[in-house]
Design a protein around this nucleic acid. Structure first.
Length: 492
RNA sequence: GCGCCGGUGGCGAAGCGGCUAACGCGCAGGUCUGCAAAACCUGCAUUCGCGGGUUCAACUCCCGCCCGGCGCUCCA
């Protein structure tokens, strides 16, 4: 089934397929590694993850490039303040970034491209732009892109800049530019700042330049898809188009995908508003990685997502139900054979699920058939109508669901443990929710021992003691489930 | 100001010119259970921001209004 994805450039739903018939070549803007990633960042990376997982699920190979911006004003500023090199500074946050992606189950792109490792390609691009008359150097040695050289500027964000010519607001330190809207390709070295000695002078790349240079290096001058957060549409992506197409005269990316912003309690997340959360903040508050992933994914990428803690609690419950269900299928003994009604239900769930995702990655709609199937199967199990062949079919559908949503495998405890260790190492234990510490302090062996004691008590019909143990464990976030096959427990 | 997006049950959220308005969470009652939990069953929007219009038929299309959000500057 071919994915139909909204294309910012054309303003309509376009099918997304590899133009070379081999692999879908895509570029998605990565992070500037100057700090820990926040949930807004991760919503975008998660939605792109959904995209690439869906492509793979439908049999399309993916060649996905992600840049790491490891030199920019903030990095330079922060590294100087910390008294370390920008390399050491950015490496630390790059490492943290990838740890966070692992926590959230975000697949690695095929190619990770660091800006500082591709300076020659950027210099080359500036030279080509200069040769084409689209770049000029100012007195201080910086290079700028000449917007006037690219009449199509604004075609992505649908902006008409003709009426917004050089107005009153021209930044003081940019007075040398020909036009206020011209943007920096290459920033001349300032004393003490990291810089590269190159054929176009000593300096460092502008932010927009790296994406054009690296995308073309790894994907060619024209490729299938470019993705990123909605805020990047203008000016970043617009600038990338201008820089690239001015020299290639070919469409840079033919399909553009933009993920809408995340709000927190209905407001834009910002440090000054006090509603700013990193992934690690949430883990230390006791929320599960899987719940964060599900919450951030469940609202389709083209809608604003309003982040709330209630939403995280909801996602936690939903995941628990799914996991309990799968456990019941895996662990139960079923008579051989098939129940045609369930076989049909499984097929329907599968096709509905794929169809929803193929329709502009409608993740909200895609969840529904899985829960429909869950209910049908649970009912059948209660009635003893589910056969081993049904179990296999349903587990296969669940696996396919999880190929995108990736929440069934419980790796939450490990993720939380990692976050706790990090908090300890960086002196952030004060930020940890107290109940999380008591919960993590309880080992599996200790739980098993208490459960065994309770089973004994139950045998002796000492229900008072049995309930006491159950309550004790409940306070520490452990839930018990009695069944014919013994006691199951799980951490809340 | 200009531009874009949205306003559906207690909450999140999907949806389509005409099927009982998905699904999740939550709540209430029931079944099961030593009691719970899990699971299942039943119920919880005669209604889709407001006012007009088009249509045999609109939550779904058009117009206006109100409310919210975002972009136009570094930002996922």
């Amino acid at each position: 089934m071919t994915l139909r994805l909204f294309n910012t450039l054309t303003g309509q739903m376009d099918p997304l397929t590899p133009s070379d018939g081999e692999a879908l070549r895509m570029y998605a803007c990565g992070p500037t590694v100057y700090d820990y990633g926040h949930i807004g960042n991760f919503r975008t990376f998660l939605q792109v993850d959904v995209l690439r997982r869906f492509l793979k699920l439908t049999g399309i190979k993916v060649r996905h490039v992600m840049n790491i911006t490891d030199v920019d004003d903030k990095i330079i500023r922060n590294a100087a303040a910390a008294g370390v090199s920008i390399g050491a500074y950015s490496a630390e946050f790059e490492k943290a970034f990838f740890e966070d992606l692992d926590t959230l189950g975000v697949e690695r792109p095929e190619i990770i491209a660091r800006a500082t490792e591709h300076i020659p390609r950027m210099v080359e691009l500036v030279q080509r732009l200069a040769a084409a008359g689209a770049a000029y150097q100012t007195e201080d040695g910086s290079w700028y892109f000449r917007l006037a050289a690219f009449p199509e500027y604004g075609k992505l964000s649908k902006k008409d800049l003709s009426g917004m010519e050089d107005g009153a607001r021209v930044d003081l330190d940019e007075y040398e530019k020909d036009s206020a809207r011209d943007f920096a390709l290459w920033k001349a070295a300032k004393p003490g700042e990291t810089s590269w000695d190159t054929a176009i002078g000593r300096g460092r790349p502008g932010w927009h330049l790296e994406c054009s240079a690296m995308a073309m290096e790894f994907l060619g001058e024209s490729f299938d898809l470019h993705a990123g957060g909605e805020d990047l549409m203008f000016p970043h992506h617009e600038n990338e188009i201008a820089q690239s197409e001015s020299v290639t005269h070919k469409p840079f990316a033919r399909h553009w995908m933009h993920v809408r912003f995340l709000l927190v309690d209905g407001r834009k997340m910002s440090k000054s508003e006090g509603n700013f959360y990193t992934l690690r903040d949430l883990l230390l508050k006791g929320y599960k990685a899987s719940a964060i992933r599900l919450a951030l994914i469940s609202v389709p990428y083209r809608h604003q997502f309003n982040f709330t803690f209630d939403g995280l609690v909801e996602a936690t419950s939903a995941i628990e139900r799914l996991r309990t269900f799968r456990q019941r299928l895996v662990g139960g003994g079923f008579a051989p054979g098939e129940n045609s009604a369930l076989q049909e239900a499984a097929l329907k769930a599968q096709s509905d699920y794929i169809a929803a995702l193929a329709n502009d990655l409608n993740t909200a709609e895609a969840r529904a058939p899985i829960f429909d199937l869950l209910r049908a199967a649970n009912t059948a199990m209660d009635q003893g109508q589910l056969k081993s062949g049904d179990r296999d079919a349903i587990l296969a559908v669940l696996a396919e669901f999880d190929a995108i949503f990736c929440v069934l495998e419980d790796r939450d405890a490990e993720a939380t443990q990692r976050a706790l260790e990090w908090a300890e190492q960086t002196g952030r234990l004060n930020d940890v929710a107290p109940e999380l510490l008591t919960r993590q302090g309880l080992t599996d062996a200790a739980i098993d021992a208490l459960v065994a004691e309770r089973t004994q008590a139950k045998k002796q019909r000492n229900f008072a003691r049995a309930d006491q143990i159950r309550n004790e464990l409940a306070e520490k976030g452990v839930v018990l489930e009695d069944s014919k096959d013994g006691v199951r427990w799980k951490r809340k």
